[in-house]
Simulated scan of single mutants.
Amino acid sequence: MLNRRHLLGVTAAALAAPAIARAQGGAWPTRGTVRLVAQFPPGGLVDTIARLMAPSLSQALGQTVVVENRAGAGGVIGTDFVAKAPADGYTFLVSHASVQVFSTATMPTLPFDPINDFTHLGMLVEASNVLLVRADSPFQTLGQYLTAAKTRPVRYGSSGIGSAPHLLGAMLSSEANAPDLDHVPYRGSAPAMQDLMASQIESMIDPITTNVQMLKDGSLRCLGVSTPQRLPALPNIPTFAEQGFPRLTSAQWLGLSAPKNLPAPIAERMSALIPQLLANPQLRLRFEELQTLPRNPPPLGPEFVGIIREQIVEWSGVAKQFNISIS
């Protein structure tokens, strides 16, 4: 059972007698569509997970759940939209570490507080970051790659300044004493991949999700993964931790969140649904295909909030160490 008093900072007033619930005149949800906001464009990881989850949520709630894309500013626009939405149980967010953690770590100001402006209900899945090179690259191992970066420029692309791949690359360069590991930021993963395949850059750090097929068909080679254990789809690829870099173990999580002060009965019901949804065999199969996997058991409520807090502290320190900031 989740602790009602501590569930994500729900206020005492909300716990006692939520006015919103009274206005609805009974059980929730009863009035119209529930929105599931994806703060990135269609086709990306957040949108994909949101659209996988929506039908199961609809069935569980007995109400239509629609995915609404509100992209822009690296996910900040859609996240801020949910932060300022009514806490009535009809607007939820597929929250993402790239915004809640990495934007917080690298942007001096945000229009929302990543903890206090949300009711964080639970973690859904995690996607590992991977270091990729072309199949014809001379780098067969991480060791060869880092040895080269100690004597000459070796470029790695990322989805942008301040992104998780950027910070992971900066940490790898520092811990491996490879000063010539040079970051090349792009406006998203797609243009970075285009330049990698065109030999404009030597490598790329990116979530595995959108690269599974190219790894399977042999177009790309993976030199390391950022999860604590090896990935089922890449059992022969060692983790960064196995190769001497235990700090490079951060996957990018996706979660389910709502505006702050969500009434406790709604928050408890939605949190309780998360393990049930993640246990759905059809959903699990799709997660495995994407190599975007849930924890077992998934962190819920205060545990999830604790993870977000810890990661903000950790990655803010990394951003400060390497002077990574987005104005």
Rank of each mutant, 00 (worst) to 15 (best):
Q24Y: 12
G26P: 02
A27D: 11
A27W: 01
P29V: 12
T30E: 08
G32A: 12
T33C: 11
V34T: 09
V34A: 10
R35V: 06
L36H: 04
V37I: 15
Q39H: 14
Q39T: 00
F40Y: 03
P42D: 11
L45Y: 03
V46P: 01
T48S: 08
A50G: 09
A54H: 04
L57Q: 10
S58T: 04
A60P: 00
L61E: 11
Q63G: 07
Q63W: 03
V65I: 07
V66R: 07
E68P: 09
R70Q: 13
G72M: 00
G74K: 02
G74N: 06
G75P: 05
I77E: 12
G78M: 07
G78Q: 01
G78C: 04
G78R: 00
D80A: 10
F81M: 15
F81C: 06
V82P: 03
A85L: 00
P86Q: 05
A87S: 13
D88S: 07
G89N: 06
G89E: 10
T91H: 10
T91P: 03
F92P: 04
L93A: 02
H96Q: 01
A97Q: 08
V99C: 12
F102S: 11
F102M: 15
T106V: 14
M107E: 14
T109A: 15
L110H: 02
P111E: 12
D113I: 01
D113Y: 03
P114K: 09
H120D: 13
G122P: 02
G122N: 05
L124P: 07
